[in-house]
Design a protein around this nucleic acid. Structure first.
Lengths: 347, 347
DNA sequence: CTGAAAGCGCTAACAT
DNA sequence: ATGTTAGCGCTTTCAG
């Protein structure tokens, strides 16, 4: 009644050693692929391991090695966006793939606003994981500071917003796509189509991706009047709102570049409501190439593609490289991936 | 050069004890809220903890308590669906919320097909986590067996497909929504609208949710001819394909119930292509109430809502209840949540 | 109510 | 090449 019925006592290194007639150290060597064990003995050990169904105790191992073979993925995004947008899911998959290949576990930390930062900080400083992958920072986010103090190897997803000076000598490594270049290309495409009044629906401007895309827009259209730029927030509803304001301010507009596909999709909806045909009256370009959204809008969306899964994979790879002790000098400290314009029907 | 520059030696229980002038045992009691420590001493200890910035070493603790304060979330879904569908993201959020409240960590295990099952099984049996939440099982999935053998407390997301007999006396606890009842209600709604030729696009029939929804369809429409039922796979493309076949087989159909919103959305696209107006010519009902999809289709989708996030939260709660030793007799072993029809424009 | 001491299972020097 | 040994940091009887 008090005894745990199943989940019997798991065999220890000691038990394997006894069974194989060797010392614990030898078993440890075999299990961890250590060097210099006679093949004959190693075989015996492996047999004993199989027979007993031995699995190393991770806690005991961590206690001495101070490694955890686990990294944290922190998604610092609130309600609205995280899960309306398959973006994070794709990154997660990329990350998961890479980690799996290295037998490293993924601890997922979802934050729900500022209160959570403390909790996350505590966890990250708590020495439970070997590193962290941090996404979707906002400009005033306290997380980077917390992390730096914790001294935990970290790679950021998207260029962090703080000044490089703050970060000391080496700034934190990050992976991002070429937001500015992609935006520029999108707008140039619109210009090439002969559009003259091109508007922009921005993303949430407390994130560098939104700022960079806005910069790209301006690169291509230095003289765009302020009434052609309307702030959005990367959501569908934000896209709708922005599109309404744009149409009110500039009924003659003939193109719009939205900071992501979700807001482009909101814009499309408003354009339809207002009787503008796309792309005839108004051409629309998005950003992300989120298939679930871009392929299913009416009409399908011309957009700027970024390889989101690859970004995730890359982040994980950079973190693991760091972890394996290569440290400072190895490889570039940040990576910016190229984007590509994907033409569909909307522009 | 060889010294780790940051990440200095973290203080141990011992250090705190020395600082507070008490024994390790006392510090341990205070830190863990143990009973019977004089308030005066406890205060001293707490001060020392703060001054030193002491954080307990999790590995050391696990080693002796055999608890990990971590659970695994296993998503056993392949490429196609996991990340096309915000479904899992929502569940994850529900789970994360509940776990956070209990200071339990979430280890995410994404599988990529059968090869991965072994890896996941090994991890789950490896004694790294206190329990598991498992999603999206397919009928012939080896995972349940592996898990049962590992003797790990587990709650399934969605009714598992195996026969109860296999599972021994108590079958595995799960959380699901009332797929059958929801489907029935959807179809009755269509009938109430006066529709006479109602078709069904199923989900992937190796998952119980798809089978249950099909059963619900049949409950309401016992005499539906087989040419009115077309197999889909819960994807947009699957919905398109199925809709085409249905229209070919039964051009006169005036309604379709799709097993989820994504496939309903594919159906909508085909209906538009073929010049049928929705809902005038053909009424369409989906399942899930995935806002990203259902609110943005043209026209917006009438669908069956399930509270996905709540399902996640509930699963976590059930698992934690189990973990806290209440064991067998406490509470119902499975939960089926109600669904609700959400009327929009498509039916 | 508090302290002393015995491990939890494993790795990594250090011997041999 | 293999074995011996000393902890890693913590919880938990058991004495006092």
């Amino acid at each position: 009644m008090t005894e745990e019925p199943s989940a019997a006592q798991r065999p220890t290194l000691e038990a394997v050693a006894a069974r194989a007639g060797v010392s614990r150290a030898t078993v440890s060597r075999v299990v961890n692929g250590g060097p210099g064990v006679r093949e004959e003995l190693a075989d015996k050990v492996r047999h004993a391991v199989d027979e007993l169904g031995y699995v190393p105790n991770h806690a005991a191992r961590s206690l001495v090695t101070r490694r955890h073979d686990a990294i944290a993925v922190v998604i610092a995004e609130s309600e609205t966006r995280v899960f309306a947008d398959p973006f994070f899911a794709l990154q997660l998959r990329g990350i998961s793939r890479e980690l799996t290949a290295h037998d490293v576990q993924l601890v997922l930390l979802l934050t729900e606003g500022r209160d959570d930062h403390e909790r996350v900080g505590r966890y990250l400083s708590g020495g439970h994981v070997d590193g962290a992958l941090v996404f979707s920072l906002h400009l005033d986010d306290p997380l980077p500071g917390i992390i730096r103090r914790a001294g935990l190897p970290t790679v950021f997803g998207g260029r962090p917003g703080w000044q490089d000076a703050d970060a000391g000598e080496r700034s934190a490594p990050y992976v991002d796509c070429d937001n500015r270049g992609g935006a520029r290309e999108a707008v140039r495409h619109l210009v090439g189509l002969g559009r003259r009044r091109i508007a922009h629906i921005t993303g949430a401007l407390d994130q560098t991706s939104a700022v960079d895309r806005l910069d790209g827009f301006r690169d291509a259209l230095a003289d765009a009047g302020p009434h052609l730029i309307e702030e959005g927030d990367f959501t569908f509803a934000g896209g709708e709102r922005a599109m309404r304001r744009l149409l009110d301010a500039e009924p003659e507009l003939d193109a719009v570049f939205a900071a992501n596909d979700l807001s482009a999709s909101g814009a499309l909806r408003v354009l339809r409501e207002r009787g503008r045909s796309v792309p005839d009256d108004v051409a629309v370009v998005g950003f992300d190439d989120m298939l679930l959204v871009a392929e299913q809008t009416e009409p399908p969306l011309t957009t700027v593609r970024q390889d989101i899964e690859e970004m995730g994979r890359l982040m994980a790879r950079m973190l693991l490289r760091d972890r394996s002790g290569e440290g400072l000098a190895a490889g570039p400290s940040s990576v910016v991936l190229p984007t590509a314009l994907v033409r569909r029907a909307s522009a």
